[in-house]
Design a binder for these strands. Sequence first.
DNA 1: GACAGATAAGTTTTT
DNA 2: CTTATCTGTC
Length: 674
Amino acid sequence: MADLNDAQNEAIKYIDGPCLVLAGAGSGKTRVITQKIAYLIQQCNTPAHKIVALTFTNKAAREMKSRVSQIIKGSQSRGLTVSTFHNLGLKIIRSECKKLGLKSGFSIFDAQDSGQLIKELLLRDHDDAADLVQLLQSQISSWKNDLVRPSEAISYAKDSNELMAATVYEHYDRHLRAYNAVDFDDLILLPTLLFKDDPSVLERWQNRVHYMLVDEYQDTNTSQYLLVKLLTGVRCCFTVVGDDDQSIYSWRGARPENLALLASDYPKLKVIKLEQNYRSTRTILAAANHVIKNNPHVFEKRLWSELGVGDEIRIIQCKNEDQEAERTASALMSHKLRYNCHFQDYAILYRGNFQSRIIELKLQQLQIPYHVSGGTAFFSRAEVKDTLAYLRLVFNPDDDNAFLRIVNTPRREIGSSTLLKLGEYAQSRETSLFQASQEFGLQQILNQRNLERLLRFVHWIEKTQQNFETNCPAKAMKEMVDDTGYEAWLFEQNKNAKAAERKMENIQQLIDTVEKMTKKAEEEGDEASLKDIVNKLILRDLLEQQEEANDLDRVQLMTLHASKGLEFPYVFLIGMEEELLPHRNSIEENTIEEERRLFYVGITRAQRQLTLSLTSQRKTYGETSKTIPSRFLDELPEEGVIWENKDQPKPEEEKKAIAQTHLSHIRSLLGEGS
DNA sequence: GACAGATAAGTTTTT
DNA sequence: CTTATCTGTC
């Protein structure tokens, strides 16, 4: 436990009661958590399996796990729980599903599934509901995050609109249960409500948690706050770490005031501030402090650094996004060649996922290896969603969303009118589409031919279910995909065979992943249930994991949100414009402070050098329009910041670098050829 | 019931 | 500029 400062040491050794660590950016908060876990296990004889550490992202959980295992020898950390809130919730729901009225194969609805369900419910009662869906979806989500149940929402409603929304909420929840499904918010909400209502269940779980640590505490919502409070109970043995300046998730229900709430809920709360920054140069830190000064603060803190002054912050002004991408890529490349760094030392950050496209293009042109993290690209692909829907239906036949998605994909000549009739029948019988398909009464409604087609599908699903019970998951999955004739259908659909091939590769990747996960689970002695794996897939763990292993030396591309908790020697932050950062909606909704924190997060990711860029015109929806420099640029200090004018010719050095890359590329091609 | 072509709509951020 | 949805024809 060498090399820790006094505050860090104090935070680690204080274990007798609730502890709040206010940790500024780069102040070593992850170190505090990992070292504290080691301290608990090695010095305090706390059994590893009674310690729970919670994070918000899979990536953070993985990182923490690996850092803990670096400190303590393998066997000692066995049984330690390091997981995301959502994964812990899933674990609790899985083992308590009977109490919650769920069957074991329950599905997890992602945001898209939820949206679809809400849309359907709205269309039943209202004519033009399309633009209401998003609004209702976020309303229902906030209700769930605030522990408001449908009945309460209905009784609190003040006008007809609110009543309508609350009614949709009630229908929505009822349908979820009927589908034997939960949504993302339920993963936290259901365990919390269960613990609140059932003391015996709560006690059982409390006994499994002797000490709890929570990372990024400013991101907790009301439901998560209560979950932690309930689980830690009267023992109050927990450490939470957070930074209100890095609160960037209030749009999804996070309550940074939970930091302050803690002090009133726990009068004995020990508050420790970490103010020494070990990450960034003084120039970068000064800029970050200067910017965040514009926000009001509950907890005052002064971040300082012992590191050198370092390079100036560069601001590159470009004509358009094309040039911005080009200059970013070439500046990166010339820097890399000059200082002989690794690609993994660089990160390119942006506000929205859509901004990665042009950058990717330019990086490809310069042969720069990169990895785009986060992003829903893979999971939003039709073929991936189809395959997952097949699995969902196999394990949970009541999942009507999955049923509708794949009942006629590939074509089984089951069309919309058949499904409409089936839907009406199922509704009247109050059962799922799958169950309804097998009912006798359906003969009255559907003609012989259509009924046969439907039953053929139902029987095939049942056959597949059996196959999954007798065969190993990956094999059964492969057979399932083969059985559907999906591949042939893809080639039929896509004129160019290449696109179809790529789609099949994506499905194969899913199968490979399942195989790997199964093997891994077996090695660790867990039950290798495909149900769990599918749910983990939907929670987005795993695939990232695989990619990470392969993507060693690559430039990292990600959103500002995704970058929180990470650090890079050299950071490029692109799109410093009004309506982008701060985002247009945030300007309208007057939530500039959160955007400022987002900028703050971006700045503080950089260890040695920070480069900002902006354009004077940008293409949106295919139309170019003028842009205004971000107001945040005005908030930077004058000292230590240099502006590069757009009219300036490209620096000679960068030109040379590009030429050199091309040359070395040609050489490598020649070399391989001979 | 399938499919092509037209038209409209939409990009914040994530588990 | 892409993607989702609608419409009309076969």
